[in-house]
Structure formats: C-alpha cells, structure tokens
Amino acid sequence: MGAAVLWGMVAAASLVIGALFGVWRSWPEKLTGAVLAFGAGSLISAVSYDLVREGAMLDGGPGVAGGLAVGALAYFTADRMLERWGSRHRTGPSAGTGAGPALALGAFLDGIPEQAVLGIGLASGEGVSIALLAAIFVSNLPEAIGSSAQMRSNGRPASAILRLWIAIALVCAAATVGGYLVADVASSRLKAAIDGFAAGALLVMLIDSMIPEAARKSGLVAGLFTTLGFATAAFLSATG
C-alpha cells in the first residue's frame, strides 16, 4: 500500500509541476503551441504503446473496444457540458473559453485510469512500470503547462488554476491506491477496459482540443514537435 501511495503521488506530481510552470509567467503563443504539440505526440504514443497494446494483450480486444467507446463518450459528454456551463457563467470577454478547461478535463479523465493501471501493476507484483510512469510524466507536463497558460491568459487567477490542478493530482494519486486495492478482484477484461477508457478519452481530447490548439498557436512547426513528442515517449516505452 505504501508503494502505491508513493508512486501515485510521484506520477501525479507532474500535473502540479506543469501547472506551476503554466502560471509562473506569460508564455509566448508559439512556445505554448509547441509545448502542446509535443504533449500531443507523447499522448499518441501513450495511447498506442501503453494503453491499447497492453489492453489488447490482456483481453484480446473486446475489453479495450468497450473501454474506448465508454471513454470517448464520457469525454465528449463532459466536454459539451463544460462548454455549456462556461457559456452561462462567463464573467469576462474570454473567461471560460479556449482549450484550457478541456485539457484539464482530459487530464482528469485519462489520469484516473492511467494511474489505476499503475496501482494494479504494483499489486500484481510487477513492480513499477517505468515505461508507464515515464509516459504519464512526459504527457502530463505539457498538458498541464498548456492548459494553465491558456486559462491564465483568459483571466483566471493563478491561485484558482493551481487549486484545480492540485485537486486533479490528488484524485489521480488516489486512483493508484484504488487500483492497488481492487487488483485481486479485477479481471483481465476489466483491466483492458480501464486501458481502453483512458485511450478513448485521450483520443477525443486530442482531436477536439489539444491538436487544433497546438496547430493554431505554433503554426507549421506543430507537426515537427508532435513527432518529437511521439518519438520521445515511444523510446521511453520501448526501453522501460
């Protein structure tokens, strides 16, 4: 249990570190876009190598497919609700707009199952998956930096942004402990569905928010930074 708490906090800490960087100073728009593009590439790698592949190895496909559908619909529905809530409670010319809240929602919806998988691995005696831990870190940092910088530029107070990301990090860390506790009763299909859920939420978030925002802010170099992010995460996964 102690190991699950420790590694859960280590993995989730990247969200708070990224948020601190995001609110620390005003980031040039092109740099923010490049960070988002790098994060998008690393998340594509995480979907491919650390979630879908691992889930398919556990269950052969059905569990992952079901999880993908549920995760995609969960993010889509929650994002639409967030947009409607933001439009009704807008207090300034830009408050509630932009990709910042959507990226935070994506980090929340994919962070819980990702870290639950980390806890399941610990309980199963597999030890810490360095590849998964690295993928969580590499993807969380630019996701949190980009989201926090976007919300800061839209007029959100730095203290409110940090409270949001601390809350997300705490819930994600708790998911590692939850995964550890349910590992003995979780079937291979359920574990595969957890992987699929994270992958489905990530894919919708990437296409709806992260990639368009990265391309808009950084322009033609977005593709290069996306490739760099993918290559970095894929290397960490292959060598982990």
Rank of each mutant, 00 (worst) to 15 (best):
D79G: 04
G229E: 13
M57C: 08
L68H: 07
L118P: 01
A144C: 03
T77G: 04
R189W: 08
G200K: 00
S237L: 06
A74L: 06
I130C: 09
V47T: 06
T91F: 00
I166T: 12
V182D: 07
S147V: 15
L190W: 12
S45D: 02
V16E: 05
T77Q: 07
E114F: 00
I120V: 15
A238S: 13
A116Q: 06
I207V: 15
A231P: 08
S153T: 14
W7D: 01
L132D: 10
G71E: 01
S14R: 08
Q150T: 15
P93G: 15
S124Y: 05
L82N: 05
A72G: 14
G229V: 13
L170G: 04
V10M: 00
S45I: 04
T77K: 01
H89N: 13
E143M: 12
G121I: 07
A3H: 10
S14L: 12
G229K: 15
A192D: 12
G60M: 08
F38Y: 14
G155R: 00
H89Q: 12
E126R: 10
S159K: 12
A46C: 02
P62T: 10
T91Y: 00
S87C: 08
P212D: 11
L202D: 09
S45M: 08
L58I: 11
A186M: 07
A174C: 11
E83N: 09
F108Y: 13
A238L: 13
A215I: 14
G178S: 08
A192P: 05
A222Q: 09
L141I: 15
Y49N: 13
E29Y: 13
A78P: 05
K30M: 09
D110Q: 07
G67F: 05
A158L: 01
T32W: 08
L224E: 14
A186N: 10
A40L: 12
V128G: 04
A65D: 06
A107N: 05
S159V: 15
L51Q: 01
R156A: 14
E114L: 00
A231L: 13
G146D: 07
L82W: 05
E143L: 14
A149V: 02
G41M: 12
R152E: 06
S147W: 01
A214N: 01
A222E: 12
I112K: 04
Y75Q: 11
L31C: 08
G178E: 07
S14Y: 12
G179L: 07
V128H: 13
V64Q: 10
L206C: 10
G106C: 11
Y180G: 06
S153C: 10
L43W: 09
L6W: 15
A104T: 03
S14K: 11
V10T: 02
S187M: 05
V23M: 10
T239I: 13
S14P: 04
V182N: 02
L122C: 08
V221S: 14
T32M: 14
F108Q: 02
G146I: 03
I17H: 00
T239A: 11
G121A: 07
T239C: 05
V128T: 12
L162D: 05
S139L: 00
S139M: 05
S209M: 05
V47D: 09
M9Y: 10
A74C: 07
F197M: 04
G121Y: 02
Y75K: 06
A160D: 13
A134E: 03
V10I: 04
L236Y: 11
L181I: 12
A158T: 03
V35L: 03
